[in-house]
Nucleic acid binder design. Structure first.
Lengths: 203, 203
DNA sequence: CTCATTTCTCAACGCTTGTTGATAACTGTC
DNA sequence: GACAGTTATCAACAAGCGTTGAGAAATGAG
């Protein structure tokens, strides 16, 4: 009666449904039963394919975003930050990328594994760019600053959907946030360069 | 054997334990049973005092932070952003404030109520400052930008505990992030070339 | 003391969860 | 057609959850 799906199709459907669920409600509230229902499949099949809910999360967090493409050629732009933000916002329009990122955000603050994935994503993706302009500890600090700004933006625009951020055009946001990123990447981040020597300098 | 606690003490202990639990693991993973155990109390008492887990969350999210104090006198500082960040970082050192904020972050991305509380906190606290320099839609956009930057910073430093952000001195972070805030508050955010905004000289 | 009131515990209900083992249904190969 | 292998379903389990209602224990007033 019911025609069977092509091989590998159910697995793919489960993964997509899982990504969507994790992105929508986070790890804890996403249930295997709901994921299975969305994929048109028995809950037991989810376990059979992925082993456990944790492993399903792992599989869901494998980001399908090509970081190299997003950060390529960045030095050739007069304002790298603006261009970087523009590309990021464009990437977030793609449902798989947006869902993957949302899953990380929603899950990453209350689940160990996803927290590491989130930190790793930021490190890997941003550090590669930063290291074209800085090295060592300075580079890691700059990368963290860029990551915090981008993550905050993603949180407001994608997760919380703050109207001012969610409805603003990519261009407007890029022009506003871009200079910040440029400064974090290449600018002076140690404060006033000369005159104002008040406190003892940190180690 | 067990002497009774002074009146109101159990309620206070429950609320404190709840704040800690929500801050540590988010709404879903924080169980009433665990909160009761941490408070040295029967789970039923938690319900009797607060009605339900949702209402307990509401009570836990009432922020004990005096926003007016954090944002007072800000105009008198040459670099308001740096001073604002410095005060925020100092406030985050206080366990009740830090736990309240962490509870919002951990919970706010996967729970409706907390999401609104998070957005409201940012609106109320930041918008008041911004409206000393801008009005209308521009002010709300600027407030959203400031909120996103601060939230990203809180996420990295407090929640994910990215080493570069968690271990850096408040002063270093304030000097790095401060100019960004100043620019979002009072600078040019429409991308006109030549009006860079922060106090740093050309790179 | 007695009695009413507040504070707190106990045992249990109904429900949902992730996960399991047995088993059915379909597919391709000899 | 018979067999092996994958693909999928079913019913059920044990555990943990929020919540409830009855009642015990302490407290304060008369």
């Amino acid at each position: 009666m019911s025609p069977r799906r092509p091989p590998g199709e159910s697995r793919r459907a489960i993964l997509e449904a899982a990504r969507r669920q994790f992105a929508a409600v986070g790890y804890q509230r996403a249930t295997i039963r709901a994921i299975a229902r969305a994929a048109g499949v028995d809950p037991a099949l989810v376990i059979q394919y992925f082993g456990s809910k944790d492993e399903l999360l792992d599989a869901s967090l494998e980001m399908p975003v090509d970081i190299a493409a997003v950060t390529a050629d960045l030095e050739t732009y007069p304002d790298l930050g603006t261009e970087l933000v523009r590309r990021a916002l464009t990437a977030w329009d793609s449902p798989p990328i947006r869902n993957g990122l949302l899953a990380m955000l929603r899950t990453g603050l209350s689940h160990q594994r996803a927290s590491e994935a989130l930190a790793a994503l930021v490190s890997r993706s941003v550090l590669g760019v930063v290291e074209r302009f800085a090295t060592g500890e300075d580079a890691r600090f700059r990368a963290a600053l860029v990551g915090a700004q981008i993550a905050g933006l993603a949180m407001g625009r994608l997760a919380l959907q703050v109207p001012e951020l969610a409805e603003a055009s990519p261009d407007r946001i890029a022009r506003a946030v871009g200079p910040t990123i440029t400064r974090y990447l290449t600018g002076d981040i140690s404060g006033d360069p000369g005159a104002d020597g008040d406190g003892a300098p940190a180690v």
